[in-house]
């Protein structure tokens, strides 16, 4: 068996969940590093190289809003869920629940 096969499938599986996790965590305002830290504390490790560009992408899709603000004498870019993002998150969570309950019945 290809040793990378599991890793590839795992990454594919994680991709969608990461978006849901990031959107959900950004119901409260965060900047990149604290968001990553909070997600890691909650058991979801995301490397910076994935998370920071993802935030940009979600903002381009208008699911997040952001603003530069000073904190501890340092300017940081803070992200927050947009009204569109809130709606999409709600739909995604419903979808996730459905998949989860189906999986529970299947497995």
């Amino acid at each position: 068996m290809d040793p990378d096969l599991f890793e590839n499938i795992r990454l594919e599986l994680r991709r969608g969940f990461l978006i849901v996790a990031v959107l959900a965590q950004l119901r409260k305002e965060h900047y990149g590093y604290t968001l990553r830290k909070d997600l890691a504390d909650l058991g979801l490790e995301i490397d910076e190289g994935t998370l920071y560009p993802l935030l940009r992408r979600l903002e381009t899709q208008e699911l997040l809003t952001s603003e530069w603000r000073e904190e501890n004498n340092r300017k940081k870019r803070f992200y927050r869920l947009s009204p569109d993002g809130r709606q999409i998150l709600k739909q995604l969570l419903t979808e996730l629940e459905k998949i989860n309950s189906s999986l529970n019945r299947i497995v």
Binding site: Y31, G32, Y33, T34, R36, K37, E48, Y52, R74, K75, K76, R77
Partner: peptide, 13 residues
């Protein structure tokens, strides 16, 4: 600038 702020925060932490 954003990447810099994140990296510095991480290093300071």
């Amino acid at each position: 600038a954003e990447l810099h702020a994140n990296l510095v925060s991480q290093a300071e932490d």
